[in-house]
Design a protein around this nucleic acid. Structure first.
Lengths: 216, 216
DNA sequence: TTGCGCATTAGTGTATACACTGGAGGTATG
DNA sequence: CATACCTCCAGTGTATACACTAATGCGCAA
């Protein structure tokens, strides 16, 4: 049991289910229904749903009914507009403040990881998470990091809609390596611009994958 | 009665009290204590405190006690780092998407407002709010706007620490006018850079006012 | 006197009961 | 047959009772 409090468990479960699409957009989130389903009482479930609304994963359609929010290509564009603003700033600040050795080490890891085989996908994602965590610590700005946390929550939905392909993963590794190197070198402009390029490519890839999926 | 739900009223009250400093940083927020004080039961008060924590206005010092978060000059700097990222992006997007007539009208209002007399301060702040609301609508991006909403909540604390002086207000009006004009002209770069300049001046003014206050 | 351990308690986390309201469905009437 | 109103109910909003835990204070011993 990871989460001690029932409210946290309920929240984590619902977030995961919305991210995976198990709870599809438009699904009505009745307090009693979800509470009984997850085996908690209404009080912690109510708290969990409140947090979903605060995150933008659910919204009150009417004063009486809460539903899972929609998430389409237009939302992904908007998401990346906000993400660009925050991540470029984070990269810039990171380049000014980060422990250079740590990011040099991360850059080396990005250089070493092999994405040629399917089995290494998880390893790659874990490396990304390490990078994000290190950057969060480096920027040392709770306002920025909190905003990014919400963005990343929604980003999972985007990734779910458009599964990454292998060529994109390889490029993404190279892009992250460049960002890490820029931070390690203490070059804020390069870090910001490399992040811009990375997010542009990521968005393009997702939208293209989405278009292909819609065509099929 | 503005807010129907007790939870919303409690939240609004606590936010206001934290922003004004009535509830000083470090103040312990006991559920029972605050609930009885504001005349609600623990359930809505608990929800209100949860939202404060999500906003970063309060934090769980220990698993058992929640306190009002601190807010010093370093926090103001961090706040403006995040604010710059979001507001510059908002201005840029606004210049691409906004109704030009509306912002031309706003620019004219900024040009017309007289800040020479004390009585017009409220009028000026109301104009700012109109501008912010119009920009929020124009950018049409809930991710960005939600993040900005939190930032603005904290910004009130910064303004409370360092009351604006008159010269600063006059400059601020002129800066807003330039931003509005840039948006009306559909010039994203100018809008973003004018926003950068505005935020730089605003931060400088706040920090200077803070230093002067500390010296006295 | 100081440190450790136990009992007490204050305060959170959860469950549940009650109140109220908005909406759905049925019926009656034009 | 359509529409308007009335009734009923499902579901939220709030209050409160219960459970559990962590912090505090007291006592005892070294």
């Amino acid at each position: 049991m990871k989460e001690m409090r029932a409210g946290d468990r309920a929240y984590a479960t619902l977030v995961s289910e919305i991210q995976s699409g198990e709870l599809a957009p438009g699904t009505v989130l009745g307090e009693v229904e979800q509470a009984t389903r997850l085996g908690v009482s209404r009080t912690p479930m109510r708290e969990a749903i409140g947090r979903l609304i605060a995150d933008g994963l659910a919204k009150q359609q009417s004063p009486r009914t809460t539903v899972v929010t929609g998430f389409d290509a237009a939302d992904i564009r908007r998401l990346f507009e906000a993400r660009r603003a925050l991540e470029e700033t984070a990269a810039r600040l990171g380049a000014q403040r980060a422990d250079r050795d740590e990011f040099a080490s991360l850059a080396a890891d990005f250089g070493a990881v092999q994405v040629s085989s399917e089995t290494n996908i998880d390893e790659y994602y874990e490396l990304i998470r390490r990078f994000d965590r290190a950057l969060d610590v480096a920027v040392d700005n709770s306002y920025l990091v909190s905003a990014l946390r919400v963005i990343r929550t929604h980003l999972v939905r985007a990734r779910q809609l458009a599964r990454d392909n292998h060529m994109r993963l390889e490029s993404s590794v190279a892009e992250h390596r460049l960002i890490a190197e820029a931070i390690a070198a203490g070059d804020p402009d390069l870090a910001a611009h490399a992040t811009h390029v990375h997010l542009h490519n990521a968005l393009t890839s997702i939208l293209q994958s989405l278009a292909e999926g819609a065509a099929s």
